[in-house]
Design a protein around this nucleic acid. Structure first.
Length: 188
DNA sequence: ACACGGATACTA
DNA sequence: AGTATCCGTGTC
């Protein structure tokens, strides 16, 4: 399992290197195929820019903690806390390729198509049952929830982050090239 | 194209 | 209290 030290480095490096790792969450698991990096300082799209609670979260938690919040009042979104490297930040998990617990994911998503179980940040949390009460729990020490290093699964490419109005030009979205499980095709 | 829906942080 | 904003999804 990825240890705390993995998350104590530069957020952009962590975001890129999480691609190809397997996210294990209780009875379900999937290969991470898409992430986005958010920087705690100087990034207007990061929660720390407007939310006191996000800044306090960084203070109060160790690197590798799960930062989970409700988006648009509908979807839980899963992030990993990056802390203690050159700069702090968050990595948003945007898409996974299901590997374990697929039947459970199909039940929760009310869908059978494997490619649609985790091809979006809100979809994968629904499929894997990631909820608000898991906010703050560690992704480095909980025996049921961790990241597994699996080695390169293909070519990783960078693209602009999705769905944000501020600081939208940064190429801080990382995805597995040509994966059917990405939430969106790259823009160029 | 648009409805859905709640936490957070503002204003007063 | 009320309002603006927000890292999305499903269906119209």
């Amino acid at each position: 399992m990825l240890s705390v030290s993995f998350f104590q480095r530069d957020p952009l490096t962590c975001s890129r290197e999480l691609i190809g790792c397997e996210l294990v969450w209780d009875d379900c698991a999937g290969i991470v195929v898409e992430t986005e990096a958010y920087l705690a300082e100087g990034d207007e799209a990061c929660h720390t820019f407007a939310r006191k609670s996000a800044r306090e979260f960084i203070q109060a938690h160790e690197a590798g903690a799960a930062y989970i919040y409700l988006n648009y009042g509908v979807h839980w979104l899963l992030n990993a806390l990056i802390k203690g490297g050159s700069q702090d930040g968050f990595i948003l998990i945007r898409a996974v390729q299901p590997t374990r617990g697929i039947e459970l994911m199909q039940q929760r998503r009310k869908l059978s198509a494997i490619t649609q179980l985790g091809d979006g940040p809100g979809k994968l949390t629904q499929a894997m049952n990631v909820r608000g009460l898991d906010h703050g729990t560690s992704l480095c020490s909980d025996p049921r929830r961790w990241f597994l290093l699996k080695g390169p699964q293909g070519e990783v490419m960078a693209d602009k982050r999705i769905g944000i109005s501020k600081a939208a030009h940064h190429m801080w979205r990382f995805l597995l090239k040509d994966s059917e499980f990405d939430s969106r095709k790259p823009s160029h």
